[in-house]
């Protein structure tokens, strides 16, 4: 179907942002990890498609949380 809708407007979808290379490096240094340890997000994910991120990118997710107010989560984009 040709018609689309704005995925990111939905209340279930938290804010996704693509990290720059410098930010990614800083993140890996802060937690002493490599991209292997990060949770994954598929490149076919509707949000990733609308963001235009590619495999290997790191996505920052700002989740609303009942227990902490807001939490930050990171996912690595991978090929399906």
């Amino acid at each position: 179907m040709g018609k689309t809708f704005n995925v990111e407007a939905h209340h279930l979808v938290p804010k996704h942002t693509k990290l720059s290379d410098a930010e990614t490096k800083k993140l890996f240094e802060k937690y002493n990890i490599t991209s292997k340890e990060l949770p994954k997000i598929l490149d076919t994910d509707p949000v990733i498609e609308s963001l235009g991120a590619k495999a290997g990118d790191v996505i920052k997710v700002n989740r609303a949380s009942e227990t902490a107010g807001e939490t930050v989560y990171y996912r690595e984009v991978v090929d399906e």
């Binding site: 939905h10 279930l12 979808v13 938290p14 996704h16 997000i41 509707p46 949000v47 990733i48 989740r63």
Partner: peptide, 9 residues
């Protein structure tokens, strides 16, 4: 339709 983060929620 909405992605993995929405699914988690």
């Amino acid at each position: 339709t909405l992605g993995i983060e929405a699914a988690r929620r």
